[in-house]
């Protein structure tokens, strides 16, 4: 579904991703962990070209997104993204946040978009907040709206960039619960997170990144209980 080949990314002279090779299968939940500065968020942002790619190839459903002829807007409609800082549109109500892209990009009518938006809000447990503004919501609620907004485009893949890192501890659970539900429904997901419990419970595969490389990857149980590399061991000993 996603194939990454020899991906390199530099910011000026600083090479953040050195040589990344990875694949994501349909319906798979891949969790990316690693110390900060290891390049895991950059890696995720390269998958929908929010970061330009310095070298290498990323192929999504057979489409090479690094090819200049690829319509990146079209690719992005299939790849939803959830951000650490939520990035809801503060001048729009919750339901308008969700309806905007389906109306503009998928050309849904206002009624169709609204109906779908309300259904998604029900799914994330926030139907009664449809007409509220983002400022009046808690962090956990904001992130659940952001997930609903991304789902409204009916993406085939969802990218999560540290979705719980900006949340108060008591709100982490409600967001992870929504993500878990999504995984159970068979969504293909790539999740950058520090939530090792989530990685262990929901992840099909865990990638451990450090210094711009994927150092080790394995099933969660194997990786957490029997890490092979010293850097993985040292990282896990600090976070577990």
């Amino acid at each position: 579904m996603i194939e990454v080949k020899n991906l390199k990314k530099s910011f000026g002279s600083n090479e953040v991703l050195k040589d990344i090779n990875a694949f994501i299968n349909p319906k798979e939940v891949v969790v990316v962990i690693g110390p900060s500065g290891s390049g895991k968020s950059t890696f995720l942002r390269c998958l929908n070209l929010l970061e330009s790619i310095t070298a290498g190839h990323v192929t999504i459903e057979g489409v090479d997104i690094t090819d200049k002829k690829t319509d990146i807007n079209k690719v992005r409609t299939e790849v939803g993204m959830v951000f650490q800082q939520f990035n809801l549109f503060p001048h729009k109500t919750v339901i308008d946040n969700i309806m905007l892209a389906p109306m503009r990009v998928r050309k849904l009518s206002a009624e169709e978009a609204r109906e779908k938006g309300l259904e998604l809000l029900r799914k994330v447990g926030l139907k009664e907040k449809a007409d509220a503004y983002p400022d009046s919501l808690s962090g956990g609620q904001k992130q659940r709206v952001a997930i609903a907004r991304a789902l409204a485009m009916e993406p085939k893949i969802m990218l999560f960039d540290e979705p719980t890192s900006a949340l108060d501890p008591e709100m982490v659970g409600e967001v992870l619960e929504v993500m878990k539900q999504l995984a159970l429904e068979g969504m293909t997901m790539v999740v950058v997170t520090h939530e090792m419990g989530f990685a262990r419970e929901v992840g099909d595969r865990v990638l451990f990144m450090d210094g711009g490389y994927i150092v080790e990857e394995n099933e969660p149980k194997q990786l957490f209980e029997n890490p092979q590399h010293d850097r993985t061991k040292s990282f896990l000993s600090k976070v577990l």
């Binding site: 929010l50 807007n73 809801l88 905007l100 892209a101 990009v105 952001a146």
Partner: peptide, 20 residues
């Protein structure tokens, strides 16, 4: 992040500018 969110939803640059 506002522009990134709009673009990640598949909106083009002009749409993102105008609506967001």
């Amino acid at each position: 992040g506002q522009m990134e969110a709009a673009r990640s939803l598949g909106m083009n640059h002009v749409q993102s500018m105008k609506d967001v």
